[in-house]
Design a protein around this nucleic acid. Sequence first.
DNA 1: AGGATACTGGACTAAGATAGTCCCATATAG
DNA 2: CTATATGGGACTATCTTAGTCCAGTATCCT
Lengths: 168, 168
Amino acid sequence: MLRISKLTDYGTMILVHLAVQARGAKDGVVDPEHLCSASDVASGTRLALPTVQKLLKVLARSELVRSVRGAEGGYALARNPATITAAEILDVFEGPLSITECSTADSRCELEDGCPTGGAWQKINRGIRGALDEITLADLAHPPREFPLVDLSGRSSRLRHRPTPGQG
Amino acid sequence: MLRISKLTDYGTMILVHLAVQARGAKDGVVDPEHLCSASDVASGTRLALPTVQKLLKVLARSELVRSVRGAEGGYALARNPATITAAEILDVFEGPLSITECSTADSRCELEDGCPTGGAWQKINRGIRGALDEITLADLAHPPREFPLVDLSGRSSRLRHRPTPGQG
DNA sequence: AGGATACTGGACTAAGATAGTCCCATATAG
DNA sequence: CTATATGGGACTATCTTAGTCCAGTATCCT
């Protein structure tokens, strides 16, 4: 379905949570240095703690989130949300995005000569990446009313985020 | 990976094969009515016959390919390749594309109120679909030199299509 | 120093999706 | 009637994903 995985979806929620917290959603004080523990994020996003821990570890290894170890430690965005794009987020969780397996490192097209599609998928890739480069984490963290919520299909206009089972 | 499945990739190869055959690649005679049997397509694309049969059945149920049963039967494109978009092809094999599970029919967002991402993914969806609507099957069937083969990653610039195992 | 807190790294398992194959029924040409 | 082909669907092995858990390490505070 050309669909991102649930973990990527959850990871985006986590990033949004961090962005909102840094913006001072809780006490009105803007503090880009504000650290959130994994527990904070889990309760704030209603995701299961182990899952949140796993995803925060991945994020901390990326350039998007920084971490502080030890008591009173936690996680915070490493950069301004306006400079973090959806393309970067997908890269972190799903690797370099490409619509087909070729154009990745281990590409060995055994039908290369017989493959009549040429490089058209690359053009598609560029279009997709272009769309993803346009959206920033700041956009995602905006309150819904800032987006007109254009409904493409006449169905739901919200993300569906299920809490992971086994908690709560 | 935001990656399409192998079957979708194979299905696209099949469509390209049908487009090229109708264009008269074999004997120079343009014949939009030219029927290809599943065996023809399998040998032409070097994909395994059972896989090709399966995919052609899916395609025949869509509006993209028509079929003729019985001896001397086969498959042909139902429409001009220039009117078949990549978005349609993905729809056939992977269902209506949406980057997250919401905005599909069975959407029940249990965190709807707590979900702070608003409708931004919808914007991403629109961008992606826009890119996919720009590419037609005719583009895909063009010889490679018609596309500049812009290499996004400094790696391979061709699709990787592995023949299905179990067929010599 | 020592305990409490909290991130780090990786292993592990269950569930689901995917890829691929095969069988039987049906339709058509000769 | 037979050979050729599509139609529909079941079936299975394999891979990926989702989710959990454990042992290790760093830091704060008393």
